[in-house]
Amino acid sequence: MRSVYAGAPRPAKTADHTSAPAIVLDRVGKEYPGGVRALDEVSLAVERGTFLAVMGPSGSGKSTLMHCAAGLDSPTSGSIRIDGHEIAGLNETRRTELRRERIGFVFQAYNLIPSLTIEDNITLPLRLAGRTPDHDWLRTLVERVGLTERLTHRPAELSGGQQQRAAVVRALVAKPAVVFADEPTGALDLRSAHEVLDLLRDLVGELRQTVVMVTHDPAAAARAHRVLVMADGRVVEALEAPSAPQLADRLVALGEV
Rank of each mutant, 00 (worst) to 15 (best):
L203M: 15
A222E: 07
H153L: 07
H153E: 04
A181H: 09
T132G: 00
V229D: 03
F107Q: 04
L65M: 14
P57M: 04
A241G: 02
L25W: 05
T215D: 10
H135L: 08
T14R: 15
D26E: 14
P57R: 14
E119Q: 14
E47R: 10
R170P: 13
R48P: 05
D202V: 01
F51I: 02
Q246I: 02
T50I: 04
L116A: 11
T215R: 00
D232L: 01
G56H: 10
S115M: 10
T76F: 13
R10C: 07
G161T: 08
E157C: 06
T152H: 14
L138C: 03
V42F: 03
R139N: 11
P133N: 01
Q246R: 06
V214L: 03
G146H: 01
A53T: 06
A6W: 06
R208Q: 07
A174G: 15
F180Q: 08
S3Y: 00
R250H: 07
N111Y: 15
H135P: 01
A156L: 09
N121T: 12
L116W: 14
A6M: 13
L239P: 03
V24W: 00
L203P: 08
T152I: 00
A171W: 10
D189E: 03
E101L: 13
R99I: 13
V179A: 05
V4T: 09
V252E: 10
R154V: 00
V4A: 11
L254F: 13
G49T: 01
L116I: 12
A181V: 09
V168C: 12
G56F: 08
A8P: 01
R127P: 04
